[in-house]
Computed example of a mutant assay.
Amino acid sequence: MNDISNINKDGLPSTKSLIKATVAAMAASAVILVSAILPAEYGIDPTGMGKALGLNVLNQANASEAETTPVISQPVNLLGGADSPVWKGAAAPRTNTMTLTLLPRQGAEIKSPMDAGDNFVFNWKTDGGLVYFDMHGEPPNPAKDEFTSYWIGKDQQQASGHFTAPFEGTHGWYWQNTGATPVTITLTTNGFYGDLYMP
Rank of each mutant, 00 (worst) to 15 (best):
S112I: 01
K111C: 03
G54C: 04
G179S: 06
N77K: 08
D45A: 10
L102P: 10
A21E: 08
P166Q: 01
A40T: 08
D155N: 15
L55T: 05
N141S: 00
D155L: 15
E109Q: 08
E41S: 14
Y174V: 01
A21K: 13
A21C: 03
G54D: 06
A180N: 11
W173S: 02
W151T: 01
Q156V: 05
A165Q: 04
G107S: 15
S73H: 02
Q74H: 03
K154F: 04
I32R: 11
T47M: 04
I44H: 11
P46R: 05
Y174I: 01
T97W: 11
L55N: 07
V131T: 02
M135Q: 13
P139A: 05
R94T: 12
T184F: 12
D195T: 14
A21H: 07
S149I: 00
K20V: 05
S35W: 06
K16P: 03
P75C: 08
H171N: 03
H171Y: 00
Q74Y: 04
M114N: 08
V71P: 02
I110T: 08
P85N: 13
M1H: 15
P166M: 03
A40F: 06
T148H: 13
A24L: 10
G117F: 01
A27S: 15
P142A: 07
Y193I: 01
T189G: 01
V86A: 15
V121E: 09
D45Y: 13
N56A: 10
F163P: 01
P142F: 05
G191K: 09
T164K: 14
K144P: 15
D155P: 01
H136I: 12
V183L: 09
P104V: 03
F122Q: 11
G11T: 12
S112Q: 04
E41K: 06
V57H: 09
G54F: 02
L18D: 10
P85A: 10
F120M: 09
G129T: 08
A180H: 07
G161A: 03
N56K: 05
I37K: 07
L103W: 00
P104C: 01
F120G: 05
N8C: 07
N177A: 14
I4T: 15
A24W: 04
T101I: 06
D118Y: 06
A61T: 15
K154A: 09
G48D: 07
S149K: 00
A66T: 14
G128I: 05
K125A: 04
P113N: 02
I7D: 00
L55V: 05
A28E: 11
A143P: 04
W175L: 01
P39K: 03
N62G: 13
K20A: 12
V183W: 10
N56F: 06
A92S: 11
A108I: 02
G89Y: 06
F147T: 12
S64R: 12
A143Q: 14
